[in-house]
Design a binder for these strands. Structure first.
Lengths: 211, 211
DNA sequence: TTCCCTCTCCACCCGGGGGCGGAGCCGGCC
DNA sequence: GGCCGGCTCCGCCCCCGGGTGGAGAGGGAA
């Protein structure tokens, strides 16, 4: 799918030449694509990101919602992080730039049909770095930092959830005075000044609920 | 680098046959590799993950710490999530399984030398799915949530760093009154009650420095 | 020009948060 | 038995943080 007619028709011709690959349809924009897919039942959709009326990411999202079995390979000129992650989150499983040759397109299509992926090498690098930069997610089980007790960690988790002392007291069914004691103790142990720093500490050590 | 002598020597022979690729050394385990690298100054290191004495991830971590310019491509039989993410977090920029052909190894080496990556297709799929499943990390450049202004986001980032109002005022070279104004505005926009909730908000939206 | 938004600053109020000292209870360890 | 650490609670003090209302300067858009 591509909004530039010349590009699209050239691409169709190119793809028809490839063995093991059959072009069942072509669309000029997202809305046309969504109409076309139920008719022609493709296994794989090649998707441009920049299109009029509905962009590729949104089209991909709707396409996967309606037809989860259809695999989407993005084929676009842009390879910025924004586009890449938006497309992949929308459900695309391949991502090629338009300087990819016909053989690379064929490999990518074959890969997604086989449950794998074939991405542009630069995109692969972006993903590698995104994964490498992701937090190593501290193990939830045991091992509290700085000698915090279970109760203190529990209070800390509630602080990280934005609860006030009174709310924490209600949550744990203890008095507010006790909450303050726990807080003072954990502040001393973790060298924290106030609850704002405590929230940050909780996130960095994986003690925040869902963080 | 590989601990099985036969495998290692066979690999060396294979790689020597590839154009544009020169084998400058081979090691049986991580410690030997760390000794060898400063001597032979490789551009790219092929790394097995399962090795005696020091595993590939740890070796990669130390190698990148001592020689950040050296690129590491993992070449292993295992492609479970655990191994993949551990290796990439350790600093590897390529990941191949041992059913990769010589040409794929050559492509991977060339890719990392060129600042890109060439991963095993199955590994690519794992990364794509990891990224797709990851929380929609708000884009750092532009696109602030809930209509926050740049200044408000700046103040928020400092709050998330645990700074007091007075410290934030000093950091931004404005009065504390202005800081309080920004804070009140961003609290209203983001529906926050206090700075503890603000820190949590900052982390969830990727506005916290390093979070 | 006019209007709106952003950024800047002021004064006032007050309630929650944080510091400090002290205390009792319980269970585990020496 | 004695001791220690965790959990519970109390009172007191004080200041930072947050709410409100108001105001002026500068810039961009209509």
């Amino acid at each position: 799918m591509d909004d530039q007619t010349v590009v699209r028709e050239g691409l169709v011709l190119l793809l028809e030449l490839l063995p093991g690959l059959e072009v069942v349809g072509a669309a000029a924009d997202g809305e046309e694509a969504l109409r076309l897919v139920p008719e022609v039942r493709p296994e794989v959709v090649l998707m441009d990101l920049r299109m009029p009326r509905m962009d590729g990411a949104e089209t991909t999202r709707r396409l996967k919602a309606a037809h989860p079995e259809v695999e989407v390979v993005v084929l676009t000129t842009y390879a910025d992080d924004e586009s890449i992650f938006a497309a992949l989150r929308a459900g695309a499983r391949g991502y090629l730039t338009k300087d990819a040759g016909a053989d690379e397109i064929a490999r990518a299509v074959a890969a997604v049909r086989g449950g794998a992926s074939q991405l542009d090498p630069a995109v692969q690098r972006r993903l590698v770095e995104a994964v490498a930069a992701a937090e190593p997610r501290a193990p939830r089980a045991g091992g509290l930092p700085d000698g915090l007790t279970r109760r203190e960690a529990e209070v800390l988790a509630l602080i990280a959830r934005g609860r006030s002392n009174a709310e924490i007291a209600a949550d744990l069914v203890i008095s507010e005075a006790t909450v303050k004691t726990h807080i003072n103790n954990l502040f001393a142990k973790a060298a924290l000044r106030d609850r704002a720093q405590a929230v940050s500490y909780a996130y960095r050590h994986g003690l925040a609920p869902g963080g």
